[in-house]
Amino acid sequence: MTAWRLLFVMPALAVLAGSADAQSGPNDFRRPPLPAVDTAAAPVMALGKVLFFDRRLSKTGSVACASCHLPSLGGADRVARPFNDGGTLMARRTLPTVNLTEMPRLLGDGRFSSLETLIPAAFQRSLVSGRAPFDCWVGGDDTAIGAGAKQGFALFTGRAGCSACRGGWTFSDGGFHDTGLPDTGDLGRGKQVPNSVKMRNAFRTPGLRDVALQPPYRHDGSLPTLTAVVDFYASGDEARPSRADEIKPLTLSPEEHSALVAFLPSLTGRQDAEFTVPVPP
């Protein structure tokens, strides 16, 4: 091998060898420190916060962003499907409006690629999940989460294979997957990318931070509890060409089932500062 080729090979070996060793350990999921506050952007963010709570932005003046994206619930709500400002039941479950800077594409079908398409972007960019007991455990406090949650995390990153789509500190790859839920006619990402078999019935992977605050689950709100979610994945459900290859048959003992369910509430965060609700003028 000539010398100039070695210049390319050695860094590649280092990077890829490092990648091969980088299996999903707790530190891969630890919430990073929040970036320093940009004081120059503070006025825009403050205006965005007020707009987020102002119902006058809706056509009928009946709903605000915060009507469905409650900061106290990690930016989501607790209904299967909300009503829009016209009183019509919406097609899909509310997605959390936190950690959106980690999502290359927005909404369940990914039809928006920039936060700037949503109002108010500057404020939404600042919404980040709080530090959770899981983060404290990763940081060295062995008492922060219980044995069941620890076992659940081991399953999550191990045999259960959840981290295949739920990696990183948001517990989401930001990708689009058909998990095999019954077909309700909602093509999800498939409506935006009709020629892709894998995008049919595929929806964006939402993050799992604060997930325990946000029942029911799935894009149609069809699974009422986290237990039902784990049941769904363990069942293997509907195999079809569009189903994600990561979805595989999974047999769980009752103890393992409970452990996975116990792990998820450990991701409920607590904000460093109390959130103050603005009063629109």
């Binding site: 594409r105 930001g174 990708g175």
Partner: peptide, 9 residues
């Protein structure tokens, strides 16, 4: 891009 995984541009 990868349509399935948008985080790998």
């Amino acid at each position: 891009q990868c349509e399935i995984h948008p985080k790998m541009p």
